[in-house]
């Protein structure tokens, strides 16, 4: 029983990082109805630029953190301009494939920057742990959970209490109508992209400092974990992204403990496949795909 609770707690700690990645996907999907496959690679390259400064110029940890965030935003804007702004809205597939080839591009750029397989990633907080009753908490994971809660709180205020949030929600509901209302949809989309990249940068930094190392595979990992968590929770839903992330973390933690390492990812994909077959809308999504929706899709 103690194992079970401990695993669940660990899973939720780790799941909070998935949740942060999923939020990024869900916002981009909400605003653009398109998928940004290079989201993970964007964060990875941003973090690589920060690490490069650390490796070659021995800058302080704070500068690494700030550089990571700033360069993630810049790379995110590059992706938005090239793969989304420049391609017309209806060409969903073209945007997706374009963001995929740019992912490859970013990955190669990162490898040129730092050609070895892995690098130590400088963390803000020293690793440590504390005990609470019979349970063990790792300090950096706990801080990630807290960070995730702070980010979700800030995001909530931004989306529901500011004019920018209103504009963003309007564009995500109906971009054409929003445009007629005088909202500059292109600008809102760019801002949303920058915001999501910033958030991704924070999430990436937190995850990488927990791992204490960085590899080019981080891009693939972040993209797919975020995508899975978003789909589990329900596409386009903010609470869904959080729930999906936590669920994914908990399931992985249990699978790792009870079944072993080779079953960890397998169980995650099994969960996802089962969810899509049985309840395609995810935990929090509206019931999609019904014939009714299909009939009105082109109205």
């Amino acid at each position: 029983m103690i194992d079970f609770v401990q695993n669940t707690v660990d899973g939720m700690m780790f799941g909070s990082s998935y949740a942060l990645l999923a939020i990024g996907f869900t916002i981009i999907f909400g605003v653009m109805r398109r998928i940004n496959l290079s989201f993970g690679a964007t964060i990875m390259l941003g973090a690589y630029i920060g690490t490069w400064l650390h490796v070659h110029h021995q800058v302080s940890v704070w500068i690494v953190a700030l550089t990571t965030l700033a360069s993630t935003v810049l790379v995110g804007i590059y992706v938005e301009r090239l793969c989304f702004h420049a391609i017309r809205r209806s060409a969903v597939l073209a945007s997706m494939v374009s963001s995929f080839v740019i992912w490859m591009q970013l990955e190669e750029a990162a490898i040129h920057l730092l050609p070895e397989r892995t690098y130590a990633f400088p963390a803000l907080l020293a690793a440590g742990s504390f005990e609470l009753g019979p349970f063990l908490f790792r300090a950096e994971q706990t801080s990630m959970l807290i960070l995730a809660m702070i980010i979700v709180g800030v995001l909530h205020v931004l989306l529901y209490r500011t004019r920018f949030g209103l504009a963003l929600r309007a564009v995500s509901e109906n971009s054409l109508a929003a445009a007629y209302m005088g909202i500059n949809a292109a600008w809102v989309t760019l801002c949303a992209f920058a915001l999501v990249s910033l958030m991704g940068g924070v999430a990436g930094y937190a995850i990488l400092s927990t791992d204490a190392q960085i590899t080019p595979f981080f891009g693939l990992w972040a993209t797919f974990k975020g995508l899975i968590a978003m789909m589990l929770g329900g596409m386009g839903s903010l609470p869904g992204a959080i729930l999906g992330g936590l669920l994914l973390g908990v399931v992985e933690a249990h699978a790792l403990w009870y079944l072993g390492n080779e079953y960890k990812d397998l169980s995650a994909y099994l969960l996802l496949f089962g969810m899509l077959v049985l309840r395609p809308g995810g935990l929090m999504g509206q019931r999609i795909l019904s014939r009714e929706a299909l009939a009105f899709r082109r109205v």
């Binding site: 090239l82 793969c83 420049a86 391609i87 060409a91 073209a94 945007s95 494939v97 374009s98 080839v101 740019i102 992912w103 490859m104 591009q105 990955e107 190669e108 750029a109």
Partner: peptide, 13 residues
Amino acid sequence: MIVFGGLVAILLI
């Protein structure tokens, strides 16, 4: 990949 990725992204535009 840098060349290919860039070329394909521009092509798709």
